[in-house]
Simulated assay, not measured.
Amino acid sequence: MNHAALPDLVLEPLVRAALMEDLGSYGDITTRTVIPAGTTYAARLNAREDAIVSGMQVAALAFRLVDPSLEIVARVSDGQPCARGDTLMEIRGDAASILSGERVALNFAGRLSGIATQTATLVAETRGTRARITCTRKTTPGLRIVEKQAVLHGGGFNHRYSLSDAILIKDNHIAAAGSVRAVLEATKAAASHMMKVEIEVDRLDQLAEVLEVGGADAVLLDNMSPDMLRDAVAMIDGRLVAEASGNVTRDTVAAIAATGVDYISSGALTHSYRTLDLGLDF
């Protein structure tokens, strides 16, 4: 799946903050102490395991922010697969600059590739069904934009980016407002015609009420068994977008997808991934 890169202008504040955190108030004193000024070198960013790559754009930006004169050549693009031993990027130029940007570049690339790889694993389990794998707002504070991009690189889809993107009525909203009917009628009375509305239910009687009252575009079927999801999909009968959520793992996702839901959302994509093992070799 091909996804356009984000503008560097959007990514720069995240990468700059990470570099400032790592360089501290006095810069890389180890490198300044042991590397003679003017030393140049070539380094390779190598994968130490098979994966789907993400974070190459961010890693390159980290090196360029440290030293715009560095020559950076990407060998594997974001969203592409790599095998153990593949060179993902080559960096040439001032050795001190490369070493000063190394950890931030690896931190971003390793974590984002981990998200992309985990996403691709779930996507593979749903092939042959209509279900799309989507992320949630359970992201690392401050890094949502790159983590959601990594989900796209893994072949998944993005849920809402923030609370202001769409109306998603959850169980606590229903409890506070009093009923499914109350929240949907309030939404119909006040929401913009440009705003999509989704409501969460965990019982079929709640779903029946949603269908009776109307006003929703999608329904989040929370923590339902595959049998209950099948019943829910039959009740919906194409009138709403059906999203399943809860207990989504590699072992369960195929059975969930087989129920006929349109989307399967998983917070684990961005909060329980394993960081890809990468190395920068001189």
Rank of each mutant, 00 (worst) to 15 (best):
Q149I: 04
G178S: 13
G215M: 08
A244N: 11
Q57S: 11
A95L: 15
L269T: 08
L229V: 12
V76H: 02
R144P: 03
E49V: 03
M56N: 01
L9D: 04
V76G: 02
V15L: 01
T275A: 14
A37R: 13
E102P: 02
L14G: 00
A190Y: 10
A257G: 13
T30H: 10
T252V: 09
M194P: 00
L152W: 13
H173R: 14
Q206G: 06
V104L: 06
A166F: 05
V58N: 04
A177S: 14
T136A: 10
D202E: 08
L88C: 01
D67I: 04
S192N: 08
D28L: 09
R239K: 15
N2P: 02
S97K: 02
R64Q: 15
T259I: 07
A42L: 00
D165L: 06
T136Q: 08
D22G: 04
D22Q: 05
G156R: 12
A232C: 09
T259V: 10
V34Q: 04
L240T: 11
E185H: 10
L9Y: 02
I236S: 08
D165Q: 09
G93H: 07
P81W: 02
S77Y: 03
D28P: 05
Q118W: 05
R32A: 15
R239G: 07
H3V: 15
A120D: 12
I145L: 15
I167V: 14
V233H: 04
F157S: 15
Y273E: 03
L269E: 09
L229W: 11
L168S: 03
S69P: 02
V66K: 04
G267D: 12
G246V: 14
E71D: 03
S179H: 13
I133N: 08
L70V: 07
R274S: 12
D281M: 05
A74D: 01
L276A: 12
D86G: 06
A4R: 13
V233Q: 04
S192V: 11
I133D: 03
T31L: 11
S162N: 13
L163Y: 01
M194G: 00
L70S: 11
S113A: 08
K170E: 01
A74P: 09
